[in-house]
């Protein structure tokens, strides 16, 4: 168990972060150069003000018409994404690990808050899964990769929740938790989870086209 733990909490963390950060940079740089070669229009029409205007409307809950039309989905989407980002960054146990390794630290959530937020992430994943299985328009678009991606996202939270409560198989679960977190980090640049890094670009571009060229709203 020591060898495994030392690996997933040592070299594997490096591998995960290098692939995550390097992968994101690679995706962004290769996209930018591809755009320069094939879609120069993107540069010609990108407009900072209108890009931000559009992004702003799409990152505040119920800021767009479609969000108001789908209140349940909006609620879950926002709760999910906020918790998904905040829990790993501000979990006490994680902050302590950063402190240990790099002697840096920042504010953290109380354990009970983090616990609830983790449950929100898990509940949202279940909601997304049920939605995917039951709504015909979503089901039609679904393939195996959608379930894999959902599993990749849910796994660190389920295992983390389990490990925090020190239920049966604590040691194995913690190792799985670390490993699944690393898998998720690596998957971000190389799967459709890349929407995390591409959102500002696609939204910003559509916002620029609508705002600066077409003089219209896009929310």
């Amino acid at each position: 168990m020591h060898g495994l733990y030392n690996f997933v909490s040592g070299p594997m963390v490096w591998i995960a972060f290098i692939l995550f950060i390097g992968g994101c940079l690679y995706r962004l740089v290769s996209l930018a150069s591809l755009a320069k070669e094939k879609d120069t229009a993107v540069y010609a029409y990108m407009d900072f003000y209108y890009a931000l205007r559009s992004i702003f409307h799409w990152i505040i809950p119920f800021g767009s018409e479609n969000m108001r039309r789908q209140p349940l989905m909006t609620l879950f989407t926002f709760a999910f994404h906020i918790c998904l980002i905040c829990v790993p960054l501000f979990l006490f146990a994680h902050v302590v690990l950063w402190k240990e390794s790099w002697n840096i630290s920042w504010g953290f959530l109380s354990d009970s808050t983090a616990d609830v937020m983790t449950l929100i992430v898990i509940a949202s994943c279940i909601f997304f899964l049920v939605r995917r299985l039951t709504r015909p328009e979503v089901k039609f678009l679904t393939n195996r990769s959608d379930f894999i991606i959902l599993a990749i996202v849910a796994a660190p939270f389920i295992t983390g929740f389990w490990a925090y409560h020190q239920w049966a198989g604590y040691r194995m679960m913690l190792i799985l938790h670390i490993l699944s977190g690393e898998i998720m980090l690596i998957a971000i640049p190389f799967s459709r989870l890349s929407h995390a890094i591409f959102f500002p670009l696609t939204r910003g571009y559509m916002g620029s086209e609508f705002g600066a060229v077409k003089n219209a709203k896009d929310w």
């Binding site: 020591h2 060898g3 733990y5 030392n6 925090y164 020190q166 604590y170 040691r171 913690l174």
Partner: peptide, 11 residues
């Protein structure tokens, strides 16, 4: 961790 003996995980 160094000696590969004794507890290393939080819990």
């Amino acid at each position: 961790a160094e000696r590969k003996a004794g507890p290393v995980m939080c819990g």
